[in-house]
Design a protein around this nucleic acid. Structure first.
Lengths: 152, 152
DNA sequence: GGAAATAGTGGGTCGAGACCTATTATTGGG
DNA sequence: CCCAATAATAGGTCTCGACCCACTATTTCC
């Protein structure tokens, strides 16, 4: 009386969903320890990878509602992880920049995300992990890319 | 200004989360058309695969709170997908059985779940799909199996 | 036979994520 | 110069999943 229904376990999408949920849940716990959520990390990553953004560009890149960007940035600027500055060229815009502290925080979070990932992928050897990564990448590249946010 | 941050795309767990979310979202839309959610399908699958359950056994198998089982069953019995009967041997227990109508509904839902899966896995050939399924299965088998529910 | 455990039920809370509608600055086009 | 579009913001709503507590009926254990 322990096992899950085979008709669900036979669905690859079910497995993806369940594995993804596990991964997200574990990381969310870690983020919560810093008072953060998934979107905070995604925003920090976007700023670190691509440099400063206007808020609307963050919104477009991550597929998050502009009004939610505001809230996330409020929470990221409180501990000083990002810096907001009015764009002098277009004073409607606010340019968001990651700070040194934000960079450090992102480094910490990424390191721990990898540790969690190592636990989750423990049953797979290096080649299999690479294979999994490749398969998932190919799935996502073709995806309508629509749907609910890039959240985690 | 379109791409997602490479530091996220480099995390396999992020890809799993995102792909899983896409799959779950698509299926959820389909389920919503019948006024159902993920748990309804999971319960139908458990009943179809393993036969009648006491509610507490459904709860244990699927990792869903007993009080939530009640609500899910309320909604499944309204359209006649399941049947609840007091267990005469232990009158505290309620034995839940899937009906012929519930079987048909599950068949429909499973067929559509596979259709959605075919779209999502479109970039992969048969061997790669099998590989992906195997990798995910191995990941989940070792998993603490704890964490938030088996939801979708 | 009385107390404790168990099964189901009802009625909530909580956080996350998606989404929506003003309102205020500011800019750019007619 | 005025109007429409744009950027940010404030302040909500809604759904879902997870979870929790109180209560009733029933069974089991001592």
């Amino acid at each position: 009386m322990e096992e899950l229904p085979p008709s669900l376990l036979g669905l690859t999408t079910y497995l993806m969903s369940k594995a993804g949920k596990a991964a997200r849940g574990r990381l969310a716990v870690r983020l919560a320890a810093d008072g953060l959520r998934m979107w905070h990390m995604a925003v920090l990553a976007a700023l670190a990878d691509f440099g400063p953004h206007a808020q609307r560009d963050l919104s477009a890149r991550l597929g998050i509602d502009p009004s939610d960007v505001v809230k996330v940035l409020d929470e990221l600027s409180a501990p000083g992880f990002v810096h907001r500055a009015r764009d002098p060229a277009d004073r409607r815009r606010v340019t968001v920049t990651i700070t040194a502290g934000g960079q450090r925080e992102l480094t910490r979070l990424t390191r721990e995300a990898r540790a969690i990932q190592d636990e989750i992928l423990a049953p797979l050897d290096a080649a299999e992990r690479a294979q999994l990564h490749d398969l998932l990448t190919r799935i996502l590249v073709q995806q309508p890319l629509s749907g609910p946010g890039a959240g985690g």
